[in-house]
Structures are given as C-alpha cells and as structure tokens.
Amino acid sequence: MTYTVEELVIDDSFIAFCTRNNPHDIARWDDYLLKHPEALITIEESRRLVLGLKYMLQKKQNELSATDDSPEHALYIASGKTLRSINEHPWPIKWKRWTAVAACFLLLVTAGIYLLNQPRKAAGPLSAAIKPNTGSGQTTQSRPGEHKTIFLPDSTKVVLNAGSRLLVSPGFGKQDRNVSLTGEALFDVAHNKALPFIVHVAQYKIRAVGTRFNVKAYTNDRYSETSLLEGKIQILLPRGDNDIVYKTLQVNQKFVMPLRDSLTREAATKPEVVALTYHDAGQNIETAWVKDLLIFENQPLDEIKNILERRYNVAITIANDEVAHYRYTATFQQENIDEVLKALQLSYSFSYKRTVNQITIYK
C-alpha cells in the first residue's frame, strides 16, 4: 500500500516520524521507504508540509503564551502549568485540528510555500566532513552547506553532498546491502559478489558488487543521475512486482532519469545513457562537488539555483521567467554566494536582493 500526501500529513505515525519523536514510528517509515523507494518524492513533500505546519503552530502558541490577557494563557497560568507544559499537552489536540484543515489542497500548497521561504539556520563549514560508522537500520543526513563522510558495516565509503539523506536497511551486511538515498552521494562500494549493493532512489535502483559511482537524486531537481567512475553497475527499473535490468553502465557513462512532474506525475522525456562531462583532463563535472568545486556547463539559472541553495544554505527565488532560463558556463571554488552571483551577472545581467538567507533574483 502507498500513501498520498493528504493521507500522510494527518497520519499520527507519520507525524511522529517527521518530528523524530518515536523510534517505533521512525523504524516503521524507514522500512516503508525501503519497500517503496518510488514513494521518496511523496514522503519528502509530506515531511516538509508536516514540519511547516508544526512551525506555524508552535509560532502561534508562542504568540498566545506571550499575550497575558489571552483566556487560554490565563487558564494555563491559573493551573500552574509552565510554558513547557503548554507545548507538551495541547499539541495533539491542536495538531489534529490543524491537520484536518491541512487535508485541503489549498492549505497544503500554502504551507509548503511558507516553509520553503523561511530563512534557514546557518550550517557548519562547507567542507566539515565527519566520519562516523553507520550501522544497519540507521539514517544519516547532511545539512545544507555540509559534506559528510560515512563508512558502512561492510567498509563501503559514502560521501554525502549537502542536504542529503541515506537510509541503511536493518539487514545490511547480513540479509542484503540495501540503502535508500535522497540527495547526492559518492559511493566507493566494498566488493561482495554474493551480496550485491543496491541503492534505491525515486523511480529506479542501482546494483553493484564492488565499484565507484556517484548518484544525484534530489527531489527538487529535474533529473536524477548515476555516474560510473570505476567497474560496472546495473540500472534496474520497476516492472510490475519485479525489477528489470534497463542498462549496464560502463566506466565514464552516466544514466539520466527525468523526474516526474509534481503535477502530472509524468516524465517529459525518456531516460538515457550519456558520456560523463569533463571540465579538464582530470576532473569530471559530475563529482566536482567532492572537491568543493562548482562547475556549470551551459546550465540554466533555475537549475543553478538549486545547487547554490544547497551549497550556501540560502533560499533563492527567481522572480522572472526569462532570467530563470539564462544559461551559464562558469567554475567556482572558494567564492561566497555574493561573489558567485556577481560573477554570473557579468555574462547575462540580472539584479538581486538579499535579506540574510533569502535571495530574490529579478531582471
């Protein structure tokens, strides 16, 4: 059984999963993702809406608690309850009231826009890689502006790009070597022919026995990409209850899967296999991020926007459709976000306004 966004945002167990309050619910939905990797996009959309509604409700509660003449505030003061009590006890009742309304499509869209436009907290240094050992059944996340290096129980090395999430199956290294990815990661897979390594992303899977490859699968990008650097990998596509081998990639090949449009749920073009793109003799563009390089090759600004948001922990809005389709070729490494934008302005002119972590680009 799969769920819609409307069903998820009013599900108590899914709400607990989003707020990380109950280990049982976290395990339940992690297991659901392993069984239904095609639901990654729906899960991420729903999670953002739940957290957005939670933020608005908490903000409303804080405003209420600050109003001395509020009847509800007076009731809690009279009963001797603290601010912590206000946040603990009324939450389920108020959440139910809000999520009943949230089931309406209009409020879902409004809440999603509200959350995406909130200023984000500053992340740690861009290259602040850490190296934890990740056990079976665990989830590892990297924040915007952060790379994270992890080692799986089989000694496979994974480098997560900014704003990524990796889920390791509970039976990893014993029954299987399955992981689910939202975001981008470079995999250096330990060899084990008897137990294939499988990466689940939205709409397809990658199977390897021991090799090195990069997977880019952000839910807000137009395409998902898998780039092979060493060895061989198989691209698996779902067909009924089974998977079929769609392509076997060779070194320096990239599989490109158009993601389904959020409204039509249909892909605009068919998946394809293309050659990796090299910036120079030793650096391909697909893995340049590992070396903190930003390399754009004839890319439209509305695609560059997503990359800049993840790298610099900012929210960017492009207010002009013509500007969104401007294409740029450029390379950056140590530049800050203002230096990057000013450099892009030199090729195709645009204006922008910045307020803390919110940037608006217009003609």
Rank of each mutant, 00 (worst) to 15 (best):
T264W: 04
N284L: 01
D302S: 13
L249W: 05
N252H: 11
V245Y: 02
T264S: 14
N252S: 07
H279D: 10
D243K: 04
D243A: 07
L263E: 15
D261H: 13
L293Y: 14
T277R: 10
L229Q: 02
L293G: 05
S262I: 07
N252I: 00
D292M: 15
A268N: 06
K270I: 13
D241S: 12
V245F: 03
D292V: 13
L237E: 13
D261I: 03
N313Q: 04
G231V: 00
Y312R: 06
I244G: 00
L293W: 15
N252P: 01
G240V: 11
R265F: 09
G282A: 15
Q283D: 02
I285Q: 07
L259W: 01
P258G: 04
R265V: 01
L276G: 11
D292Q: 15
Q299N: 08
P271T: 05
A281F: 10
P300A: 09
A275F: 12
V251H: 04
E303V: 06
V273Y: 06
D302P: 02
K232E: 12
T269C: 08
T277Q: 12
I295C: 06
A275K: 15
K291C: 08
I233V: 14
T277E: 08
L276H: 05
L236E: 11
D292G: 15
V273D: 03
R265G: 04
L308C: 03
E266N: 04
E309N: 01
K254M: 14
V274A: 11
V273A: 10
T277M: 01
Y312H: 08
I233T: 01
V274C: 11
H279Q: 10
W289I: 03
N252Y: 00
I285M: 11
T287L: 06
Q299V: 10
D292R: 14
E309F: 01
N306M: 13
L294D: 12
E297R: 12
M257T: 05
R239S: 13
L276E: 09
R239W: 03
P238K: 09
P271E: 07
H279I: 05
N298W: 12
I285G: 05
N313T: 02
L229M: 09
Q250N: 15
L229A: 06
P258V: 00
I244S: 11
K270A: 14
S262Q: 09
N284D: 15
D302R: 12
T269V: 12
R239L: 05
P300N: 07
R260Y: 01
R239V: 12
E297M: 09
G282R: 13
L293K: 09
Y278M: 13
L301Y: 05
D261A: 09
L237Y: 11
Q253C: 05
L249E: 00
E303H: 07
K291A: 14
T264Y: 03
P300V: 08
A275S: 15
G231E: 03
